[in-house]
Amino acid sequence: MFSTLTLGAQQAPKPTAPAVPPQAPPLTVDRDPVRSPDGEQPTSVTGEPLHKEGGEGYVLHTNVEEVVLNATVLEGSQLVQTLKRENFQVFEDGVKQNIISFQHTDLPVSIGLVVDNSGSMSKKRPAVNKAALDLVEASNPEDEAFVVNFSDEAYIDQEFTSNVNKLRDGLSHIESRGGTALYDAVVASADKLVADAKRPKQVLVLITDGEDNASTLTLDQTIRRVQELSGPVIYTIGLLFGDEMSHAEVRHARRALDLLSNETGGIAFFPKSMEQVDEIAAEVARDIRSQYTIGYHSSKPTSEPGFRRVNVTAEAQGMGRMTVRTRTGYFPATRVAKKPAQRK
């Protein structure tokens, strides 16, 4: 399992193969820091470096037996929730695919609440915790969630539960100190979702007020690891207002959060004040519960390797131009994530 990366004030990540990283911390229970037991390099399933296809976006990996897409449809800025299967078209590498499954129901979700606990967050945590709990309470009652608080290390402070009081207790571990190992927390949390989640639909909600300055992997490696796990969808909330950061630091932090969200089918939010965070949490809950789930079998043989670009369009009589937000593609294979180690 992997759980770290560094961006700091670097330039935009380069699509090159990274050096083998050191062992990185896995999610463990009872305030034990995240540790990676295997020290394994987060390579792509094809052995290729993380890259952008045609300069348009990072790619995701999934099992080719059935490609499942969680899609949000917008007409302008308004969610569209009245579409049928026949309103959608799915293309893989430009070839129209046959949709074999379609749902537009409020499916239960496994959610990771991943919250920055670094020193700069001390005064922001009460409002952040309230927003995170409001998000859970606005979600499907059959959802399950876990809590990860991170500074220079990532800790799981509440295992999967549907009990809001237990999640509140997990979020109450406020020890705001140290740096920001954001990428460590993202990757360890994604690994945990694949290893332990009961729901096939999986989401990370990441809340931070800065750029990564304490991880051991790069942004490229983080995105690649999430891709190898076929998700989850990542929603990010960047509390980048105030004068604690330079313009360059804000720009780098914003770009990293945009990439984490956009390439997984999520959204990056950048409120201008703490008063907006609760409203954003409600929007995230609404977005999750309003998605269409579309499945198809690829027209390509399973044995054919390589990246497969996915594009989804939607049209309906009487509707204007609609945009569909979902992941951008996949590789026809994946590795199974190892379960997080428990500290003895």
Rank of each mutant, 00 (worst) to 15 (best):
T72L: 11
A131R: 04
F91M: 07
V73K: 01
D134S: 10
N117C: 14
L107Y: 04
F102H: 08
D116Q: 08
V128E: 02
E86P: 00
T105Y: 10
K123C: 04
T72C: 01
Q103Y: 09
V115L: 15
K96W: 06
N87A: 07
I100G: 07
S122I: 12
S118I: 14
V128Q: 06
Q97W: 07
V109S: 12
F102Y: 13
Q81C: 03
L79N: 02
V115G: 01
Q81T: 06
K123E: 13
V128D: 00
V128C: 12
V128Y: 05
H104E: 03
S101N: 13
L74Y: 06
Q81F: 01
R125F: 12
D134R: 05
S77R: 02
L74I: 10
G119L: 05
V80R: 01
K96Y: 07
G119T: 09
F91Y: 15
R85K: 15
N98Y: 04
Q89T: 14
V114E: 00
E86I: 05
L74K: 01
A131M: 15
F91H: 12
Q89D: 14
L133M: 06
Q81I: 00
P126D: 11
P126V: 07
G119Y: 12
T105S: 15
Q103A: 10
G112D: 06
I99E: 09
D93M: 06
S120E: 03
S101V: 00
F88I: 00
L107P: 03
A127K: 14
F102S: 03
Q103E: 13
H104K: 05
S120N: 15
P126K: 10
P126I: 07
K84S: 13
S101R: 15
Q97T: 03
Q78M: 09
S110K: 07
V90R: 01
Q97I: 05
Q78T: 08
T105R: 15
K124A: 12
F88P: 01
G112A: 15
D134V: 09
D93P: 04
I111K: 05
L79R: 03
N129P: 07
A127C: 02
N129R: 11
F91G: 04
F102M: 06
H104V: 00
Q97F: 06
E75S: 04
N117G: 08
K123D: 13
V114G: 05
A71W: 00
R85F: 04
F102A: 07
E75C: 07
L83M: 08
K96A: 14
V73D: 01
V115K: 03
P126H: 12
P126G: 10
V128H: 08
